[in-house]
Design a protein around this nucleic acid. Structure first.
Lengths: 139, 139
DNA sequence: CTGAATGCAAAAGCTTTGCAGCCAA
DNA sequence: TTGGCTGCAAAGCTTTTGCATTCAG
């Protein structure tokens, strides 16, 4: 995700409105590396904005995904998580505590996808998920 | 998934019972490469077994996963799919029609995971998901 | 016989939708 | 002023759970 100013500009350029709720959601996400769920965002914001609703959270998260400012991380069945860090990288989930971490490409490269495979499947995206025990849970 | 006889033997060896419902579910899965959801299995079986219930379907699918005879494929948010073909391979989902296909390792190899990364994250599993337009939808 | 499995219904968990009222532009 | 946005409540969809009944071993 770009910084707040750029995201605001992008919203404006699409004719979308800059509401206090959207600003708050953008602020909650900017630089956030915890892979928050919609509930996490709701919980964080409902302290400052007691009347904010899940409907608004979900719709705004979807909008930000459409703008390419946010990525869904579906590493957990039944619960979407969101990642404002949209550069290519992998994800890891601790099967014990549920924590999600990034795995950078320097640690594990992207699997090489031959050009013919790209063509055959019309690939527009891919993701790599790892499962294991995080350092804190390895006891 | 092994053939029906071996799965039955495995169930028996764990002290689990061989019920007609379990047999029917195993039969529906054996050799099935369509990555069916619980609903798919239910729909297929409810014709022959009108009283079979989702509870039974879900519990049996979970049991087969625990026995290592079945794999969850969570390529679709909010809907688990199941794959009786448990050898390592990747999955592809058509963003247009939703069809899920296998991508064998001959087409795309597993990303190389350095030993230190294995250790660091205590890796016990990984999966690679691809998204794009299947041949039939590329119009 | 007996503990495990089934099936029904209800509940749970996450997400989406409808709609009246509100507000950014 | 006005079309898009918000917030509430209700609904939707998949999965899980409680419990009485049934059945495999």
């Amino acid at each position: 995700m770009d910084n707040k100013e750029k995201v605001v500009e992008k919203l404006r350029s699409r004719g979308l409105k800059i509401t206090p709720q959207r600003l708050a959601i953008i602020e909650a996400l900017e630089g956030n590396r915890s892979h928050p769920s919609a509930e996490d965002v709701y919980t964080e914001l409902s302290q400052r904005y007691p009347t904010i609703s899940y409907a608004t959270i979900y719709k705004t998260l979807e909008t930000l995904c459409e703008l390419g400012e946010l990525m869904e991380v579906n590493i957990e069945p039944h619960k979407k998580r969101y990642d404002p860090f949209t550069d290519p990288h992998h994800h890891f989930r601790c099967v014990n505590c549920g924590k999600i971490e990034d795995i950078p490409l320097e640690e594990v490269p992207m699997p090489p996808v031959p050009h013919e495979v790209q063509e055959k499947y019309g690939i527009v995206g891919m993701c790599v998920y790892f499962f294991g025990f995080c350092p804190a849970c390895k006891n």
